[in-house]
Design a protein around this nucleic acid. Structure first.
Ligand SMILES: [Mn+2]
Ligand SMILES: [Mn+2]
Ligand SMILES: [Zn+2]
Ligand SMILES: [Zn+2]
Lengths: 152, 152
DNA sequence: TTTAAAATAATAATGATTATCATTAATAAT
DNA sequence: ATTATTAATGATAATCATTATTATTTTAAA
């Protein structure tokens, strides 16, 4: 954890930004809830627990900054809010998501999966791929089992 | 065009919805601008040209309805607005997008491309895929050429 | 026609995000 | 150390997309 924060600190310094206490508190929340997909409000409430004096605007500004630096990715699952997702250490591309349309659960896939597709896009469409967003909508394991039970 | 509208009409009727004049005007705009990715506001302004009495709320309601029926797909490219995209005739899945980070241009890919990936997701993650959202961020052909010119 | 349900238009309300601005913290210059 | 600059913050107002409300109109059935 400390190691990870150190790296982020260096990343910020490299662009002459500082890791202020507010920024650090925000990053810590993101690290502690790495599997989750928190909205700005979610982050705000969690940060407030350890740094009660922080303002919502600062959280928005920090998340914006972290997005620019590709430390977090901003995603939108179709409910009205943006969600912020820590990029995996050293990952060149954003990871993928499985969203269950029954229960709303969100799973993560960190495997690349798109290498071949990207090659096709680069050659057939002359498009230089920098990043991607891939989300599958469907039914998670748990909900599939539920359906079986109900119908049997 | 008329044929396409007829089908949509039937689709609505099948769920006991009516193709009201407002709904038809909205669908016509979507058909006329099939390549585009219009926001609700965009659609509203275009519909107003042919049906000036329509209200914005009706456009929102219509787009919502068309989304439910899978006639249009709602997408979000990260600017603050939802965009509405006609699903290709008979397509089981939503098509893909290439968003240029330089000029903002959006290209469409109607080829499936994800068949193999979906198989992997279904078997390795036990996730029953119903649909997907895939967007590549990168540099379009035009902007690549521009860069070459500038740097030479 | 009368009646009930569905759809619409106008507009108010909501809620997420951004902008503003006065204050504070950090950094550099004297 | 003191002062001047600049960056960052917190509070809050403003904006803007979307949703809810409600009175009215349209449609289809009885
Ligand atoms: Mn994630
Ligand atoms: Mn499209
Ligand atoms: Zn589920
Ligand atoms: Zn471009």
């Amino acid at each position: 954890m400390e190691h990870r924060i150190d790296r982020i600190k260096k990343h910020l310094h490299a662009q002459s930004y500082k890791l202020t206490p507010q920024r650090e508190a925000t990053v810590r929340v993101l690290l502690e809830r790495e599997e989750d997909h928190l909205s700005a409000e979610d982050v705000y409430l969690l940060v407030k627990e350890k740094a009660p004096e922080i303002g919502l605007a600062t959280v928005y500004r920090t998340l914006e900054l972290l997005s620019e630096l590709k430390i977090v990715d901003k995603i939108n699952f179709g409910d009205g809010v943006s969600r912020y997702d820590l990029r995996k250490e050293g990952a060149a591309h954003f990871h993928h998501h499985l969203v269950c349309t029954e229960c709303g659960a969100v799973e993560e896939i960190t495997d690349d999966l798109l290498e071949d597709v990207e090659k096709i896009v680069e050659t057939d469409w002359n498009f230089k791929v920098k990043d991607h967003r891939l989300t599958f909508h469907g039914v998670c394991k748990k909900c599939q089992d539920q359906e079986l039970k109900v119908s049997s």
